[in-house]
């Protein structure tokens, strides 16, 4: 299904946030990361069971240097 990840159209084979993280980062539970789906933050513990559907907008963020 087609979803938008960090502003980019992305084809996802899996069904959950954890599937997406595994596909992109080789890790279903990377540290220092937060995920929002359709402007709602998905708590880390919910990643394995949070369903993604076609058209969803996902943001994956981490901390970077900043003032």
């Amino acid at each position: 299904m087609l979803i938008t990840v960090n502003g980019q159209p992305t084809e996802l084979a899996g069904a959950t946030v954890a599937d997406l993280l595994t596909a992109r980062m080789d890790d279903p539970r990377p540290n220092g990361i937060a995920v929002a789906v359709n402007d709602e933050v998905v708590p880390r513990d919910d990643w394995p069971r949070w369903p993604l559907k076609a058209g969803d907008t996902v943001e994956i963020v981490t901390a970077v240097q900043g003032g």
């Binding site: 502003g7 540290n31 901390a63 240097q65």
Partner: peptide, 26 residues
């Protein structure tokens, strides 16, 4: 202070690794 930005890899965590090792409050 740190900022929050989109990431595509877990390697971006280099900054956090340093800050956490030093025990700096974020």
């Amino acid at each position: 202070t740190v900022s929050v930005r989109r990431t595509s890899s877990t390697r971006d965590g280099g900054l956090l690794d340093v800050l956490r090792r030093l025990g700096v409050p974020l």
